[in-house]
Computed example of a mutant assay.
Amino acid sequence: MYKIDSTMPSWAPAVGLTLLPHVGGILGGLITRREVKTWYTTLVKPSWRPPNWAFAPVWTTLYTSMGYGSYLIYKELGGFTEDAVVPLGLYAGQLALNWAWTPIFFGAHKLGWGMIDLALLTGTTVLATVSWYPISKTAAYLMIPYIAWLSLASSLNYVIWRDNKDKSE
């Protein structure tokens, strides 16, 4: 297992782990930007859907919060140690599911599969948060807005799927 390296600058893990979630967000944004102007405009969407401009600042905030939370767990557990396998493994799993949603929903136009991904993502995120709580309450609390947003996203994905079954490839 990898423990904190004393030769590494103390700020490097904080910056790296805080920025890590943004990697998938930026790559997903490339897909979203293209599809939101074309395919997404053809979908029936609920009136309560947040405006398109709101998604970038919300996701930037959520990615930063979850990334910093992962750093707090990493720091508390002394790096990628045996004790970190479950809490950081669950975090990595939810991050992979998070990054997968955009190519599934926007890239492949698979609305139903997007719902399945979101259900797995939300469940994994809740498990990660619960596993973080005894290690760092602050880290766990940083995940609460993300869980709330995933609830909204799940509801939105469901309604879009329900109302556009004919447009889901």
Results as ranks from 00 to 15, higher is better:
residue 63 Y to F: 13
residue 84 A to K: 01
residue 125 T to S: 06
residue 75 K to N: 06
residue 115 M to P: 00
residue 58 V to Y: 10
residue 105 F to K: 05
residue 101 W to A: 02
residue 77 L to D: 14
residue 80 F to G: 08
residue 77 L to C: 06
residue 43 L to H: 07
residue 126 V to I: 15
residue 55 F to Q: 09
residue 90 L to M: 08
residue 111 L to G: 06
residue 97 L to S: 04
residue 46 P to W: 15
residue 114 G to W: 01
residue 113 W to T: 12
residue 126 V to K: 02
residue 83 D to K: 09
residue 101 W to E: 11
residue 77 L to T: 13
residue 82 E to W: 12
residue 63 Y to R: 02
residue 49 R to L: 08
residue 112 G to T: 15
residue 64 T to K: 09
residue 38 T to Q: 06
residue 45 K to A: 05
residue 42 T to Q: 14
residue 118 L to S: 01
residue 41 T to Q: 15
residue 128 A to I: 13
residue 68 Y to I: 01
residue 56 A to N: 07
residue 82 E to T: 14
residue 111 L to Q: 14
residue 50 P to H: 12
residue 87 P to A: 04
residue 120 L to G: 05
residue 106 F to S: 03
residue 64 T to M: 12
residue 45 K to D: 10
residue 41 T to A: 09
residue 49 R to C: 00
residue 87 P to S: 03
residue 83 D to G: 06
residue 52 N to M: 10
residue 40 Y to D: 13
residue 48 W to V: 07
residue 102 T to A: 07
residue 114 G to Q: 04
residue 109 H to T: 11
residue 112 G to R: 14
residue 54 A to H: 08
residue 110 K to T: 11
residue 76 E to F: 04
residue 49 R to S: 10
residue 127 L to W: 13
residue 110 K to M: 09
residue 75 K to P: 00
residue 101 W to P: 00
residue 91 Y to R: 04
residue 129 T to A: 03
residue 46 P to S: 12
residue 46 P to D: 15
residue 92 A to C: 05
residue 92 A to D: 09
residue 104 I to F: 12
residue 81 T to P: 05
residue 77 L to S: 04
residue 122 T to R: 01
residue 97 L to D: 04
residue 84 A to G: 00
residue 78 G to F: 12
residue 117 D to C: 05
residue 111 L to H: 11
residue 124 T to R: 02
residue 86 V to S: 03
residue 74 Y to G: 00
residue 64 T to S: 13
residue 41 T to F: 12
residue 61 T to F: 14
residue 109 H to M: 09
residue 60 T to K: 02
residue 65 S to P: 03
residue 87 P to T: 08
residue 64 T to C: 05
residue 39 W to C: 00
residue 60 T to L: 05
residue 86 V to A: 03
residue 127 L to Q: 09
residue 108 A to I: 13
residue 49 R to H: 10
residue 90 L to E: 05
residue 101 W to Y: 13
residue 75 K to H: 11
residue 121 L to C: 06
residue 103 P to I: 05
residue 72 L to S: 00
residue 37 K to Y: 08
residue 73 I to D: 01
residue 73 I to V: 15
residue 40 Y to G: 00
residue 45 K to I: 08
residue 80 F to N: 09
residue 129 T to R: 00
residue 91 Y to V: 02
residue 129 T to F: 06
residue 53 W to H: 08
residue 120 L to A: 10
residue 37 K to R: 07
residue 106 F to M: 07
residue 115 M to W: 14
residue 120 L to E: 09
residue 37 K to S: 08
residue 105 F to L: 06
residue 116 I to K: 04
residue 71 Y to V: 01
residue 127 L to C: 08
residue 51 P to M: 13
residue 123 G to V: 10
residue 112 G to V: 15
residue 72 L to W: 02
residue 112 G to H: 14
residue 58 V to P: 04
residue 118 L to I: 14
residue 90 L to F: 13
residue 48 W to F: 12
residue 92 A to H: 08
residue 107 G to L: 02
residue 117 D to Q: 10
residue 62 L to I: 11
residue 124 T to I: 14
residue 68 Y to F: 05
residue 88 L to Q: 02
residue 72 L to D: 03
residue 57 P to L: 06
residue 96 A to H: 06
residue 83 D to W: 10
residue 37 K to D: 14
residue 70 S to F: 05
residue 104 I to P: 01
residue 68 Y to A: 00
residue 60 T to V: 06
residue 108 A to N: 10
residue 106 F to V: 08
